[in-house]
Design a protein around this nucleic acid. Sequence first.
DNA 1: CTGTTAGCGCTTTCAT
DNA 2: ATGAAAGCGCTAACAG
Lengths: 309, 309
Amino acid sequence: MSPQTRERILAIASEMGYVASSAASGLATGRTRTVGVLAPYVSRWFFSRAIEGVDIALQENQYNLMLINLGGYGGNRERLFEHTMLRKQIDALVVLCLGLQPSELEHLHLTEIPLVAVGGPVKGFHQVCIDDYQAAQLATKHLIELGHRRIAQVLGDDKDEVDFAVPKLRDRAFEETLLAAGLRFEPGWELNGDFTVAGGVRAAAQLFDAPGEKPTAVFCASDEMALGVIMEAQRRGIRVPQELSVVGIDNHEFAEAAGLTTVAQNPVEQGRLAADMLIKELDGAVGTVRSVAAPFELLVRSSTAPPSR
Amino acid sequence: MSPQTRERILAIASEMGYVASSAASGLATGRTRTVGVLAPYVSRWFFSRAIEGVDIALQENQYNLMLINLGGYGGNRERLFEHTMLRKQIDALVVLCLGLQPSELEHLHLTEIPLVAVGGPVKGFHQVCIDDYQAAQLATKHLIELGHRRIAQVLGDDKDEVDFAVPKLRDRAFEETLLAAGLRFEPGWELNGDFTVAGGVRAAAQLFDAPGEKPTAVFCASDEMALGVIMEAQRRGIRVPQELSVVGIDNHEFAEAAGLTTVAQNPVEQGRLAADMLIKELDGAVGTVRSVAAPFELLVRSSTAPPSR
DNA sequence: CTGTTAGCGCTTTCAT
DNA sequence: ATGAAAGCGCTAACAG
């Protein structure tokens, strides 16, 4: 038929409220035009931003986004992996960094759909993420170059997620960078902040309450914890950066408003890139999905300064 | 067949990696076991929390969650409404408060699937949300009862979203409560903070930079803006609450850490309740979906105190 | 190049 | 009770 007839028919059809049944076409083609996003949390900054990034790419290509949240209720993990994720439900999957069980990883590979990890290395996966070691090193060096010698650390160690490498990498980078500069950290200056503001507040309280010498700077493995540290410092009248320098990692949306010096990364772009690769792969460009190192940069704002004592 | 045979077969089937094709069963039954969440943003506190709440209910009932993000790219709105949302793609929809065009609302009703709004009144919809007027009134009264007479307002007026009633309700409640107490607001003490931290910072800067008398308290229509106001105050050395009281609405996850006095609401519970009603409705309990007023309460923390001058 | 037909893998109804 | 068969609404391969 002629292109204009085609147009006319399509127009009439849609006017009549006709919409192709996705179930029927899915059955016939084996494609759902839906990609899944497996997330450990949906309301934490990194994850919600990454989801937005994935969504941008999907919308541009008329794909739907199915949210598979592992953070909801523990018991459902099995069902999600064995059922939801399986063939015919989604065409591809982006895995937002998290510690998956080996059996779960195996399950994912069994589905034989294109996969990509975002935000952290997952073994056996192509991934798009920053080099967490270098990012943490950059933040630590910034403190050292300002002249700080007594630096504490707030990291986020999630006991549950044994395989999640991000906190470990940031932790190791901090320690090795300190040692390389001939510094050492005091016992008790390595706190756990759970990657949350509340955790940062707790860690700071612990630090300030401890007897003896205080650090002049704190390296935080995420902005949310850094923000918590700053809030607790303010509550106690400890001036930032005059009495305490604080640096984070992420460039959380609150970081600029709070004047937080941080190593910025962009989860929106990471998610978008990952989804783009997946879509191209689905469109037949075999081998498009590959590992990509995402950019990061130090943003010096007003939470860091040379030590005053 | 016997129940045990049944079990055995099922076990073997799943061992062999068999999973029913959702497309096929969807075609046959007309059900997708998927509910959509229409969100104006995914990374703002209220929305990401509400999504989590919806997700809890869905996971408990073996439903999938399809995220339909309107915030992504403007141009796609039409496609989302005309295509994605239509029959056979999702069984029900939760609409997270936002200003939809009348034509879009009409489209939603045309799908004839169960609908429910969360977080704000949407005309023609059943909804679960707090009474925004009362919530804002409660916050304002708190300031007045502390003795404040000179109160500024930071609201979030989104020009784009003409039909979104939440900011208007909070605004009106503030003004009427002030007038009822015999107070009036200065010209220039009504700022727009866009519902973001950055907007709160800007509004506060504007307020502090203006010549003449300063307010002793600020009512913010959301915690994110209130947090921005506090950060800007701190940057300028204005002490909270001694020199400036700040109250918000929401109980954002940062509110406690920042000591922010606020009127708390719980989007997780709201989303969960909404999804539960939808699921019951789908299970045949016709009439389950109805409007519900969500609870809220004043949480007095350390950002408010009687005025010192 | 247009028009017809055979499935896709389930569910459900109808015979047996 | 169990088993056979008829679609659900598309797509893709085929014949005209």
